[in-house]
Simulated scan of single mutants.
Amino acid sequence: MATTKHPLYIIKIGGNVIDSSENLYHFLKDLTAIKADKILVHGGGKVATQISASLGIETQMVDGRRITDVETLRVVTMVYGGLINKNIVAQLQRFGTNAIGLTGADGNTITASKREVKEIDYGYAGDLDNKSVNVESIEALLQAGFTPVFSALTHDGDGQLLNTNADTIASALAVALAKKYDTTLIYCFEKKGVLKDLDNEDSLIKDIDKAHFEQLKTEQVIHSGMLPKMDNAFSAIAGGVSAVIIGHAGDLKNISKEKPFGTKLSN
């Protein structure tokens, strides 16, 4: 007889939460209300850009991706792994969630390889593979009652920290931990979910399976900026993740109320 897997929520937050102390306060309170095991993943690009500017370090972006030279790596390590991560952990402790802030180097939880130089040199950017996540270390933290809070930093196993996309980290965690848990991956951002009309919040598409997604792509209904996130979501589902939810950070409270929110993607 198959044993039932424990539910696990892996939640990624974007700048609209991190950049507002009020939004972050309410979000972390709602996160605490989720009584199942949970993992939080965050970036903090806007803050890193602001602090870089104050230090006279130019931020270089290509197609929305940060070029991470040596000086930029120092900044994102301070901002992601320090300032933002520890602020989130302290706020979660305030609400009674026993959080522990991590980079991928802590507990050897997430390893990555430095991105190969092709047309563009992204510097110290990390790419993940299907062996990147150390399931045993993370499971030990969850079983000890901790809520891991991952910043967007990994390591190469040879002493080098790497700047790694937070969406990618969240997806890799969800797929790897799906072997042990009933994982739901949640991307929280500033819209209610996947919209038919980007300017109309009432045009929310509540449920999308793989066949429906292919149809929506063919009909060019979905905004192009959402397509990479959805492609990643369906890759995660193919990798064993139960469901992916894309929705507004302010609606996370619906999880603890067992009410649907945002757009639910499933097989």
Rank of each mutant, 00 (worst) to 15 (best):
V194R: 09
E139S: 09
I51D: 04
A125P: 00
N98Y: 06
S21F: 05
T184Y: 07
G145Y: 02
M226F: 13
N23H: 14
G126I: 09
D106P: 04
Q91C: 02
H223Y: 02
T147W: 01
L265F: 14
V47H: 12
K196E: 15
R66D: 12
G15W: 05
T59P: 00
I10D: 05
I246A: 09
H223Q: 10
G64K: 11
N267K: 15
S224F: 12
S21D: 12
R66P: 05
S256T: 04
H6N: 15
L73Q: 08
G81M: 10
Y25E: 14
V17Q: 04
L28W: 11
Y25K: 12
T263W: 06
D156F: 07
R65Y: 06
S52R: 03
A211V: 09
Q143S: 10
G45E: 13
S151A: 15
V70L: 12
I84D: 06
A99S: 08
A178E: 07
S242M: 02
K206L: 06
V47R: 13
D156I: 11
L83I: 14
G159Y: 08
F261K: 09
E139V: 04
A152N: 09
G64N: 01
A105V: 05
I13W: 01
G123S: 10
I138W: 02
S235F: 07
S256A: 15
S20M: 04
S137K: 10
A170T: 05
G15N: 07
L195P: 07
M1S: 14
G44Q: 12
K217R: 15
D106E: 08
K86A: 03
K29V: 00
A249G: 14
N23D: 02
L92S: 02
F150L: 06
S54Y: 06
L195V: 04
D129K: 03
T97H: 01
D37I: 00
T103N: 15
A36T: 12
V175I: 15
D197I: 10
I88H: 01
K259L: 15
L204I: 15
Q143W: 00
P7W: 03
S132I: 07
L204V: 12
G262H: 08
